[in-house]
Design a binder for these strands. Structure first.
Length: 817
RNA sequence: GCCGGGGUGGUGAAAUUGGUAAACACAGGGGACUUAAAAUCCCCCGCCCUUUGGGCUUGCGGGUUCAAUUCCCGCCCCCGGCACCA
């Protein structure tokens, strides 16, 4: 073996032995009965990977190892820790990769999964391979389709038109990633928007609950913040602006606008409709139809990526039509501009250029009137505006509201608009309904049949799964929208309700639907007649810990929370938040950047494991920085943990049966205290440092250790280096696995107490000496000892002592002057 | 622009949330043991000076305090996410 060492520690031999024994003994896997009867269940999950052709890189291993350490620690506390692993293998990634290399995803995925599995076994993860999932397996996506049907039957899945990127040359829908500089990545034709019917899940119905529940779950603060921002609740008012004709008479039509600043309504000097707004043609003057529709057309031609880009200059056209501002009674013009989005609010705004930066910019561009209605400190009603003023102040030029502080003005003005019958309070969310349709091949078919007479009809549950057929030509091409729409023998069917000829839905569902419920499936993979068994689900869920990357802080975590909530409302489960505890891990940095294929700095784990072994590699990854922050991967750094494990091996195998030395024992118990406190809070780097320090004390001066001294270290190192821990556990006379039973060392506070402490002595805050005193020495004794130090005396000499500060066990500070 | 996270030796990083800044480790230097090498053990390792001592030092500038990496105010820079959300 390449890594054989003189001390007899050969990682590859030890690791192969224990990985084989774990498999043989079923150490990491549970039977259905074990899951049903577990006494102290602990469900420890990490986000499952997408099985790429490249295999796992060091960044993936880092995440999985950190989660595995957490799981193994709880196992050592005696819990039944369920730690499954699976594969999120559907989606555009796999599809595009298969297209690129001229292969088929149905051929690629199995070998990728096999390679991932091999790598995951090699790093010694405590994965229950008897309860794995692969989202592309019909036995899994059968239930993904079942989830869809529950939503459909509950009225939470609806079909509506939505814009997609459309390549007019290829006649196909493009994902945002396939639009390069506004052009189709394949043929270079400019991409436009097209509205097609798609399936949506009504997540917006749950927006408030998704927001409120954030209060009660234990997640990384940054993730909570990201979720709250994504939901984007804002409080304001919906106001109705009457449209007026050329003579100033109301036509009866009203334009609805949403605003978070109803208090600035006196400053609304024009209106803007989004190009897609239904009232565009109604408000436009006959003479201006041509330019207005040219503009609307141009906006539609922009692809969705370009449309969202913030341009320096705003564009727009006047309609010639106008509204009356109900606050001022003045007539104001109506414009069309694509800086107003149809998807948010009402698709129309009242423009307040004085106090909104975008409106200000637009007003300057088109020379529209700007009125000040908020006066900041030092301003009056006539102070000119050089830019939009959005700060605090009081209302001016606002009728009876003049002088009202802006902080109380929103509610006051909203109430006034409601009294006048032209407004009401309104809460808005930026969260949009979840479009789950994909006009693609590599996903689970949406289990719907379209019947001319009955409309969209659910495929009966007993007919699931709707199998994704093997289609050799799954490339999006010029024959239609979705690849499945070309497979006539597949989509032709009969209506489950009336029996007439009908057509299957040819869109597949979003990958986030696959990953939206997978945590429910793992404990129940022993059942093929139900998505999740009620008894097992009750025992094992919600999850105890979920660990994953912050790149999923929004979408995956939001969608899976939403699905869980709906399943609870439909009576399938009895909890609504799947992840009690979520922790985001940090990123591994290589050559100053996040590891990624495009940056070319990917580090492959296999050669490192070949050279040093999985235990050393794991320990190094956990040592190189705080787990939640990530850190720099430096190849040389592995020497530290490598030497540590070798020294541990040597120390344990040469240990005697002698009594533990009192000083060493104190260090050991201090270490137990620290490691026990730090592992649950994922402070792995300092926990490992503490163990290194402890071993240094045990070995100081080359002394021979007593087994009683090193014993606890074998167990404490086990979450990080499980193989060597097993081997040393066995060689020190234990039977079976260190992970069976509650083997975590007990902390004895009495044994950890230092008899004497070192106290810093300062004069005016500057360190002048350091003294050693008994741990409970009274203050006057400590101060006297401090004062007696020669170097302290010199600094006190001739100066008046004003104060003495004594922090027991830490310092004495003489304040003189 | 907004929201998060950061900025500490040659390097990765620590600091009990206001109490001796730099634990642990990498790299580097010196020594012991050894025929030799590896392994192991010991010592040095922020900067500067007039070196049994003294001064300076946690991105920059102020402040509070006996005491600030930690708290407050004002800046600069880096990383991640969102981005015309009215």
């Amino acid at each position: 073996m390449a890594n054989e060492e003189k001390d007899g520690y050969t990682p590859s031999v030890v690791e192969e032995k224990w990985q084989r024994l774990w498999d043989e003994r079923g150490t990491n896997t549970f039977t259905r009965e074990e899951l049903e009867n577990a006494e102290d269940p602990f469900y420890n999950l990490m986000m499952f990977p997408y099985p790429s052709a490249e295999g796992l890189h060091v960044g993936n291993i880092y995440a999985f190892t950190g989660a595995d350490v957490h799981g193994r620690y709880h196992r050592l506390l005696g819990k039944t820790v369920f730690e499954p692993m699976g594969f999120d293998a559907f989606g555009i990634h796999s599809e595009n990769f298969a297209l690129k290399i001229g292969s088929h995803p149905m051929d690629l995925i199995p070998s990728n999964v096999q390679n991932f599995t091999r790598q995951l076994r090699r790093i010694g993860g405590m994965f229950d391979w008897d309860h794995s999932v692969d989202t592309t397996d019909p036995s899994y996506y059968k239930w993904t389709q079942w989830v869809f049907l529950q939503f459909f039957k509950a009225g939470l899945a609806e079909r509506k038109e939505a814009p997609v990127n459309w390549c007019p040359s290829c006649m196909t829908v493009l994902a945002n990633e396939q639009v390069v500089g506004g052009e189709c990545e394949r043929c270079g034709t400019p991409v436009e928007q097209r509205r097609i019917a798609q399936w949506f899940f009504k997540i917006t119905d749950y927006a408030q609950r998704l927001l409120d529940n954030l209060e009660d779950i234990d997640w990384s603060p940054s993730t909570l913040k990201a979720q709250a921002n994504w939901i984007g609740r804002s409080k304001g008012a919906q106001l109705h602006f009457p449209v007026v004709d050329a003579d100033g008479n109301e036509t009866g039509t009203k334009i609805e606008v949403y605003t978070t600043r109803p208090d600035t309504v006196y400053g609304a000097t024009y209106m803007v409709l989004s190009p897609e707004h239904p009232l565009v043609s109604e408000v436009t003057d006959h003479g201006l139809m041509a330019p207005v529709f040219a503009y609307v057309d141009k906006a539609a031609k922009k692809d969705l990526v370009a449309r969202q880009k913030v341009d320096k200059t705003k564009t727009g056209v006047p309609t010639g039509g106008s509204c009356r501002n109900p606050a001022t009674g003045e007539r104001i013009p109506i414009w069309i501009a694509d800086y107003v989005l149809m998807e948010y609010g009402t698709g129309a705004i009242m423009a307040v250029p004085g106090h909104d930066t975008r409106d200000f910019e637009f007003a300057k561009q088109f020379d529209l009137p700007i009125v000040r209605v908020v006066a900041g400190p030092g301003d009056d009603a006539h102070t000119p505006l050089e830019e939009a003023y959005v700060g605090p102040g009081s209302l001016v030029n606002s009728g009876t509201f003049d002088g009202t502080d802006v902080s109380d003005s929103v509610d006051a003005v909203t109430a006034w608009t409601a009294e006048g019958g032209w407004g009401e309070p309104r809460i808005n969310f930026r969260l949009h309904d979840w479009c789950i349709s994909r006009q693609r091949y590599w996903g689970p078919p949406i289990p719907i049949v379209h019947c001319e007479a009955c409309g969209p009809v659910a495929v009966p549950e007993e007919d699931l799964p709707v199998i994704l057929p093997r289609v050799e030509d799954f490339k999006p091409d010029d024959s239609g929208i979705s690849p499945l729409a070309r497979v006539e023998e597949w989509y032709q069917t009969t209506c489950p309700e009336c029996g007439a000829e009908a057509r299957r839905e040819t869109d597949v569902s979003d990958t986030f639907l696959d990953s939206g419920w997978y945590f429910l499936r793992y404990p129940s993979t022993d059942f093929d007649d139900r998505p999740f068994d009620p008894a097992i689900t009750k025992k094992w869920l919600p999850l105890n810990t979920y660990i994953g990357g912050n790149e999923h802080a929004v979408l995956h975590l939001m969608y899976s929370r939403f699905i869980t909530m709906v399943l609870k409302d439909l009576g399938h489960i009895d909890f609504e938040e799947p992840y009690q505890v979520f922790r985001a891990h940090g990123l591994i940095i290589a050559d100053g950047a996040k590891m990624s294929k495009s940056k070319g700095n990917v580090i492959v784990p296999d050669p490192i494991i070949d050279e040093h072994g999985a235990d050393t590699f794991r320990t190094y990854l956990m040592f190189l920085g705080p787990f939640e922050e990530g850190g720099d991967y430096r190849p040389q750094g592995i020497q530290g943990p490598l030497g540590f494990l070798h020294r541990l091996w040597d120390t344990v195998l040469s240990a005697t049966d002698a009594e533990a030395d009192a000083n060493v024992e104190r260090k050991v118990h201090q270490t137990i205290r620290q490691v026990t406190a730090q592992i649950p809070s994922l402070q792995y780097n300092t926990a490992i440092a503490a163990m290194m320090e402890c071993l240094n004390v045990i070995r100081a001066g080359g002394r021979t250790a007593a087994l009683a001294e090193v014993g606890p270290l074998i167990v404490m190192v086990a979450p990080f280096a499980p193989h060597i821990a097993e081997e040393l556990w066995e060689r020190t006379g234990h039977e079976g696995s260190v992970f069976d039973g509650r083997n975590w060392p007990e902390f004895d506070a009495a044994k950890a107490v230092d008899e004497s402490v070192e106290v810093a002595v300062q004069v005016n805050g500057k360190l002048r000496a350091s003294i050693t005193v008994g741990k409970d020495a009274p203050e006057d004794e400590v101060v006297a000892a401090a004062r007696a130090e020669e170097n302290v005396l010199r600094h006190l000499e001739g100066l008046a002592e004003r104060r003495v500060i004594h922090v027991p066990g830490r310092l004495v500070n003489f304040v003189v002057g």
